[in-house]
């Protein structure tokens, strides 16, 4: 009798272990900060509860090279990564990301057309804007020319460290119309023009790398105005800081979910992306941080005042331009190299 009970107990134990071994986990990497916290509330926790899949959250600052080394060495530990659009296109052509069939996972008609790509599904629409402390500057800067005007607005400026989202603003400050920026930047004279405009401001620039830095510096008074991700500024505003955004000449773009090639949890990764593109989670995310949803149904679920803070809101979209993905895919590496050399001097 005892032996029979013991044998059954052991078998049950092994069965239990087997079930445990089947419980999946998925590692999701985003840009962190306020955006990562909003994702935790809107995506990770509800997904883990609904599907029973453990979500390990992490963050990075957009270093494409990290993903590439992982795939090249065959040691992929990230399952879903949030990438900017030039990195998505580059990764897809280089075979760094798994191809995603939007039709197969039922997202072809759920999300916006621009959010469907060969190797990625859009997450949200975000914008790089000009931000300043409205308490310190009653009359804020109205254009990128004002951003460059150190006499009118003395003090340091924050700019993102890198050629992207810096060279375009330099050209706009030099008088190039927003719609022509990428055309001008495509010529060698245009690039020289952008760099010499940056030279004029160089002594007053404080470079940021993490999205959390600009609102921190604005509040601390280290910089008098800065480029920033609009959602991070809104998060600081929600904390009671009097930071203002100037949408004129801002550059908006989509971020995408991509899956590095060779990820061990492909199925769970696809299910996560499916979940995160649903109307309910998208609306939840966008009400936490004002980044535009890619699911049109989610937009209708948001209250009016939340919609006004989105990059996709009519008034904000008026003077903004879309990020030049193809331009940066083609010219990104050489311009980043030139920028690094320039910044080091």
């Amino acid at each position: 009798m005892k032996l029979w009970k013991l044998r059954h107990a052991v078998l049950a134990g092994f069965a239990g272990l087997g079930l445990c071994a089947n419980a999946q986990a998925v590692t999701v990497i985003s840009f962190g900060g306020a955006s990562g916290e909003a994702m935790q509330k809107a995506y990770y926790t509800p997904f883990a509860e609904k599907e029973g899949v453990a979500v390990t959250a992490g963050d990075y600052n957009g270093e494409f090279a990290k993903i590439r080394s992982m795939v090249e060495t065959g040691n992929v530990s990230w399952d879903v990564v949030e990438v900017e659009s030039p990195e998505l296109v580059r990764g897809c052509t280089e075979g760094v990301f798994e191809p995603i069939d939007a039709e197969k996972i039922g997202l072809q008609d759920t999300v916006m057309e621009s959010a469907v790509s060969d190797c990625g599904i859009g997450t949200f629409v975000w914008s790089t804007v000009m931000a300043y402390d409205s308490e310190k500057l009653a009359e804020g800067p109205q254009s990128w020319a004002d951003f460059w005007d150190v006499d009118k607005f003395p003090g340091k400026r924050g700019l993102r460290k890198g050629a992207k989202y810096t060279l375009e603003f330099a050209l706009m400050a030099d008088g190039v119309a927003a719609a022509d920026v990428y055309e001008v930047l495509g010529t060698p004279e245009g690039v020289d023009r952008a760099f010499s405009k940056l030279d004029a401001l160089k002594a007053n620039i404080q470079w940021w790398e993490a999205g959390a830095q600009p609102p921190q510096w604005l509040v601390a008074g280290d910089v008098v105005m800065s480029t920033a991700y609009n959602g991070r500024i809104a998060a600081a505003q929600a904390e009671g800081r009097k930071l203002a955004i100037n949408w004129a000449g801002s550059i908006y773009d989509l971020d995408f979910w991509a899956i590095p090639k060779g990820s061990p949890n492909l199925d769970a990764a696809l299910r996560f992306i499916q979940f995160a593109s649903g109307a309910e989670p998208q609306a939840a995310y966008s009400s936490e941080i004002p980044y535009g949803p890619v699911n049109p149904e989610a937009i209708t679920r948001l209250p009016e005042e939340k919609q006004q803070a989105m990059p996709t809101y009519e008034a904000n979209l008026k003077e903004a331009i879309r990020m030049g993905t193809e331009f940066w895919v083609d010219h990104g590496e050489e311009l980043e190299q030139r920028f690094t050399a320039w910044a080091a001097q």
């Binding site: 270093e63 090279a65 990290k66 460290k161 404080q206 470079w207 980043e336 190299q337 001097q345």
Partner: peptide
């Protein structure tokens, strides 16, 4: 430091992490 104060190891890290 600012970009003009970066030492050699920063560039080693840049080439390893950012451009491979």
């Amino acid at each position: 430091g600012g970009p003009a104060d970066q030492m050699v190891s920063y560039y080693v890290a840049y080439y390893t992490n950012t451009t491979n």
